[in-house]
Design a protein around this nucleic acid. Structure first.
Length: 299
DNA sequence: CACCCGTGGAA
DNA sequence: TTTCCAAGGGT
């Protein structure tokens, strides 16, 4: 196990300085965004950013928040409305979880997005990353925020590996040890590590010549070895159950939440058994509703 | 911990 | 064309 107990000094300050000068101008980093939507805006953006690229989130985020500017307003929507507004952002269960979280916030927290990490963790669809991202970026509190970008940066700079291993609680401990003492500074450093991983220390062809911490990077010092990728490969999508589910849901979204005869939903799917399993699993997930021989988004 | 869950752009 | 990967989380 790599030793992370003695990280290179000044890593935090160098990264933070680089971030202050080079951060991308993203919607959720703007003062006006926070003024208008508060922690709810941060929470929604983080939900959308779970496994969906920044460039695809941006055009959806504004429309979403204009329609549902508060948790209470979204709590009054139907699942069908939410899943349809989610459109093609992917992993539609996240839309359901976000909806559920809005209801939980309305019921348990008087419509205010909680600031406490444990309270955030108790909400649907919120895990270690999102809970701390909201606490740090919306409320400015000092917590280790570790996403896939940060894990890759830590793996390279500290461990000299080309790619991070599976996500682990150990990454939280490592990041916590690197945080500057001041709350505001620690929020910046969290964002800086993510930003470096997103634009410089990328998974493929990293731009080390533009890296502000290249001189303290263990991976560069070791000659940028390919240490192999410990992560399990993403399953093939073509022909998968996920593809079938996606096709079913697209038909129902395109029907604008209206009823669609069950036998008119992807009738020519190559594998009829797979199609039926997909529909059943979507119903089990609460993403589809069956009624009178028809399928529809749940009302 | 391993596996599952969408979608689309880039290499 | 195929593969990779993207501000993860639930089970």
């Amino acid at each position: 196990m790599p030793d992370r107990s003695t990280p290179p000094s000044r890593l935090s300050s160098e990264l933070s300085n680089w971030y202050r000068a080079n951060a991308r101008d993203l919607p959720w980093r703007r003062r006006q965004f926070h003024d208008e939507y508060g922690a709810w805006g941060t929470l929604v953006s983080e939900f959308m950013l779970q496994q969906t690229p920044v460039s695809r989130v941006i055009p959806h985020l504004e429309a979403w928040l204009r329609r549902w500017p508060t948790p209470a307003s979204m709590s009054r929507a139907t699942p069908a409305e939410v899943v349809q507004q989610w459109a093609n952002l992917g992993y539609p269960r996240r839309a359901l979880w976000l909806h559920r979280a809005a209801i939980e916030i309305t019921d348990r927290h008087r419509g205010e997005v909680p600031r406490d990490v444990d309270a955030l963790l108790a909400l649907s669809g919120i895990g270690d990353y999102t809970a701390r991202a909201v606490a740090a970026f919306a409320y400015g509190d000092r917590h280790p925020v570790v996403d896939t970008n940060t894990r890759r940066v830590l793996a390279r700079v500290l461990d000299g590996r080309s790619q991070p291993g599976p996500a682990s609680r150990r990454d939280l401990v490592t990041m916590a040890a690197l945080l500057p003492q001041a709350d505001a500074d620690s929020a910046v450093f969290n964002a800086a590590a993510m930003e470096l991983g997103a634009v410089v220390c990328t998974a493929r062809s990293p731009r080390c010549e533009r890296c502000p911490v290249v001189d303290v990077c263990a991976w560069v010092a070791a000659g940028r070895p390919d240490t192999g990728d410990e992560r399990r490969r993403q399953a093939r999508y073509e022909g998968s159950d996920r593809q079938a589910r996606g096709a079913v849901l697209k038909v129902l979204r395109d029907a604008a939440g209206g009823d669609v005869p069950a036998d008119a939903v992807i009738p020519d799917w190559p594998d009829a058994g797979q199609r039926d399993r997909a529909i059943d699993s979507l119903i089990a997930d609460g993403l589809v509703e069956a009624a009178e021989g028809c399928l529809r988004l749940p009302r």
